[in-house]
Amino acid sequence: MSYSDMRYSVSQCSISTAYSKCVRYTRRIFKYDQMDFQFALWQMLYLFVSPQKLMKMFQTRKYTKSQYARDDPAFLVLFSGVLCLSSIGVSFVLNLSFVQFIKFLFFVVFIDAIGVGLVLATVLWYLTNTFLKPQNHLQDIEWGFSLDMHFNAFFPPLILLHVIHWLINHNTYLSVFFGNAFWLCAAFYYAYISFLGYNSLQILKHTKVFLAPIPWFILLYLISSLIRWNVSDALMTFYKYRVL
């Protein structure tokens, strides 16, 4: 059998396995008694205090369960709950009506978090398998792992930005300076945790490319602060316009 035939066979097997894993994962979402919420809370905590330890867990899962991606949807369920609670706080700041809040929650959960997450996970899954993985390595990076990495990297910025929106949604220079600094930290968190996640796989090369956007984030922060463009205020205006 040629290498291309082997590659195609492994790819077909991976697709079939990924589909079966996705079905099992989806079914478990409706079985709360089978979820480990305490462990999921531990993961959320470590995303803030020590994300390196959390990434080592993905390596351990590969040896014990033959997959990098989570097989327990408890993290996703808690993530959705936190997103709903933080959206309530933002809705109070925006002074939204109940109907507007429902629309806002729909956009935040299904568009900003899940929709964008699916797109980013798919793009990063393709790029890592195409450019960062050695061509002679038959095993592909799981799409579910890329989605997990997005949610891991998105959770700290979500808390950081949604919780302090009410403090930085002003037009004073200090609000612009500190508000945009929070955005810089959020962007850094996303890039850094994404780097830690993909770097933990060990089969990938040149994973430092995930850190490449950081200098651009710093440059954008400096420019936005100099011209006194409040990113949080702009986002609040966009949120409110979207639900009107």
Rank of each mutant, 00 (worst) to 15 (best):
I168V: 12
A187G: 09
F104G: 07
M1H: 08
L118P: 00
S4V: 04
I203G: 00
W42Q: 03
K208T: 11
T237V: 11
W143S: 07
C84A: 15
A69C: 10
L211S: 00
V77I: 12
V243H: 10
F151L: 15
S16W: 05
A186N: 08
Y46S: 02
H165R: 12
L244K: 10
S80W: 12
A153T: 00
V116I: 14
L226S: 14
I203R: 03
L47T: 01
L96N: 03
N171L: 05
F92K: 09
N129S: 03
Q34V: 04
Y241Q: 11
M35D: 05
N169A: 12
Y8T: 12
L204E: 05
G144P: 02
I193L: 04
F101Y: 14
L161P: 01
F110R: 04
N180K: 00
F145D: 04
L211E: 02
I218M: 08
Y126P: 01
L105S: 12
G144I: 08
A18V: 04
L41W: 11
M57D: 09
K133Y: 02
Q139V: 11
Q34S: 09
T122F: 13
S91A: 15
V243K: 11
M1K: 06
V243R: 10
F195R: 00
M55S: 04
L105I: 10
Q139N: 10
L138I: 05
W229K: 07
V108W: 04
L78F: 10
T130L: 09
W125N: 10
K31L: 09
L204Q: 00
P156R: 01
T60S: 09
I168P: 03
S194H: 02
M6V: 10
S11Q: 14
V119P: 00
Q139Y: 09
E142S: 03
L41A: 12
T60C: 04
I164N: 14
D233E: 14
R242T: 13
P157A: 04
F238Y: 15
K205M: 08
L222N: 08
A153E: 07
D140S: 11
L174D: 13
Y221C: 06
V209L: 05
C13I: 04
F155C: 10
K56S: 12
N95E: 13
V108Q: 14
V176E: 05
N152A: 07
L161S: 01
Y8H: 10
K208D: 02
L222Q: 07
S86T: 15
G179D: 04
P51D: 02
F110Y: 15
I227F: 08
M236Q: 08
F188E: 05
S50R: 15
L219T: 15
P156V: 00
F195G: 02
T64F: 05
A181Y: 08
M6H: 06
F238T: 13
M44A: 11
A113D: 13
W166H: 11
V49L: 11
